[in-house]
C-alpha cells in the first residue's frame, strides 16, 4: 500500500516547496539527458527523435508543458475547489509528476536504442511500449497531484482534470510548433 502510494501518489507526503525543488531538479536532469540522447518530448503525449537541436529546446520541451499544465490545473482548482488552494502545491506536485519522463531519455542511453535505421523496428516497438507505460504513469501521477492539491471531489474532478490536460496539451503543441518554426 505504502509502496503504491510512493509510486503513484507521493503527494500525500510531499507537496509545496519540497516537491517544487524535486520537480525542477527532475525537469533539468531530464532535459539534460534528453539533449544528450536527442529525445524530444512534445507535450505529454508525443516524443520525437532529433539530435541536431540546441540544448535550450530540450529545456523548453519539458518546462513549457509543465508550466502550461500547472496553470490550467490551478485555474480549474480556483473555479471548482471548495478549499483554499495554493499555487505552490500545484506547481510542485505537477513538476514532480514528470519523473517518469526521465525514463525515455535514459533508455535511449542504451546503444541499441540510440539510432533507428532499417531493421531496428523491434527496438522502436519496445521504445513505444516503454513510452506508453511512461505516459500512463505520468498521467496517474498528475491526476493524483491534482487530487491532493485541489481537493475537487467526484466526477467534477475527473472532468476538470481531463479538460485541463487536453487544453494544456493543445496549447503546448501550438506553442512548440511556433517555437520550432522560428
Amino acid at each position: 500500500m505504502m509502496k503504491n502510494q510512493i509510486l503513484f501518489n507521493p503527494f500525500i507526503y510531499i507537496a509545496g516547496y519540497a516537491s517544487l525543488g524535486i520537480g525542477i531538479g527532475i525537469i533539468l536532469f531530464t532535459s539534460f539527458i534528453a539533449w544528450m540522447t536527442g529525445t524530444h518530448q512534445v507535450g505529454l503525449l508525443q516524443f520525437r527523435l532529433a539530435s541536431d537541436t540546441k540544448w535550450i529546446y530540450f529545456l523548453i520541451d519539458h518546462s513549457l508543458n509543465w508550466i502550461i499544465i500547472c496553470l490550467f490545473l490551478f485555474l480549474s482548482g480556483l473555479f471548482f475547489s471548495p478549499s483554499r488552494i495554493r499555487f505552490i502545491d500545484i506547481a510542485g506536485t505537477s513538476a514532480m509528476s514528470r519523473v517518469p519522463m526521465l525514463i525515455l531519455p535514459l533508455v535511449r542511453l542504451i546503444p541499441a536504442f540510440r539510432s533507428f535505421q532499417a531493421g531496428y523496428t523491434l527496438n522502436l516497438l519496445v521504445l513505444f511500449i516503454v513510452y506508453g507505460v511512461i505516459v500512463i504513469w505520468s498521467i496517474t501521477l498528475l491526476y493524483n497531484a491534482f487530487k491532493v492539491s485541489c481537493n475537487i471531489t467526484g466526477q467534477k474532478r475527473v472532468f476538470t482534470f481531463i479538460g485541463a490536460l487536453l487544453s494544456a496539451e493543445i496549447i503546448t503543441q501550438i506553442l512548440l510548433y511556433f517555437i520550432y518554426k522560428h
Binding site: F11, Y13, A15, G16, S83, D89, N151
Partner: peptide, 17 residues
Amino acid sequence: LKLSYPTVRNMLDGIIY
C-alpha cells in the same frame, strides 16, 4: 502527521464539510 500540507488541509476540509 508526516503528511503534506494539502493532504492535511483536505482532511480538515472533509471534517468541515
